[in-house]
């Protein structure tokens, strides 16, 4: 049954990469059920993350946000700051898609803090870019400029001319 769980997860990922998002969700939900049965929190975390990603491409941003919140909660439980940062970044982008910019900013700021703690300059640059855009959407140009300047500085440092 543990192997069946892994196979279901792999099937979910294969369908996802083929762009079969509804099929992917069916497999990841079954994978999640087996992970819960075994009390396997790492596998539950992966399933929630995969479910969040698949729902984005079906335009169900509300459901993605719920799955990403579960991912975030489990990443903290598992003390995995890399996944915690990724979950915050996903939540920030999802709330931008939902046009809930205050919430987007809340999560992008959390992502920024973790990226700084981890010394992840690429992540920090992406957080600044996202914050710059979210503040523009809110009409807060002063904060947008602050993050645009940081984004420029980091892009030059890491050699990203784009």
């Amino acid at each position: 049954r543990a192997a069946a769980g892994r196979a279901l997860g792999n099937l979910g990922n294969s369908h996802y990469l083929l762009g079969h998002f509804t099929q992917a969700i069916l497999f990841h939900k079954q994978r999640l059920a087996i992970a819960k049965e075994f009390g396997d929190t790492a596998a539950q975390r992966r399933a929630y993350s995969n479910l969040g990603n698949a729902h984005i491409f079906l335009g169900r941003f509300d459901l993605s946000a719920e799955f990403y919140k579960k991912t975030l909660q489990l990443s903290r439980q598992l003390k995995d700051p890399l996944v915690e940062a990724q979950s915050c970044y996903s939540l920030g982008n999802t709330y931008s898609l939902l046009q809930e910019y205050e919430k987007a900013i809340e999560y992008h700021l959390k992502h920024l803090t973790i990226a700084q703690e981890l010394g992840d300059r690429v992540g920090e640059g992406r957080a600044c870019w996202s914050l710059e855009n979210a503040y523009i959407s809110l009409g807060n140009h002063e904060r947008a400029l602050h993050f645009a300047e940081k984004h420029l500085e980091i892009s030059q440092e890491i050699g990203d001319p784009n």
């Binding site: 892994r6 997860g9 792999n10 990922n13 996802y16 990469l17 762009g19 596998a43 975390r45 992966r46 993350s49 995969n50 990603n53 984005i56 491409f57 970044y89 996903s90 982008n93 931008s96 898609l97 992406r126 870019w129 996202s130 710059e132 855009n133 979210a134 523009i136 959407s137």
Partner: peptide
């Protein structure tokens, strides 16, 4: 407003492009 929305979307679009190939593997 439309321009703001377009600016908003570029970082999100980039994230979605990366997301297409992102899976949490078993």
């Amino acid at each position: 407003v439309q321009r703001m929305h377009l600016i908003q979307m570029d970082s999100v679009q980039r994230w979605m492009e990366d997301l297409k190939f992102m899976t949490d593997c078993e």
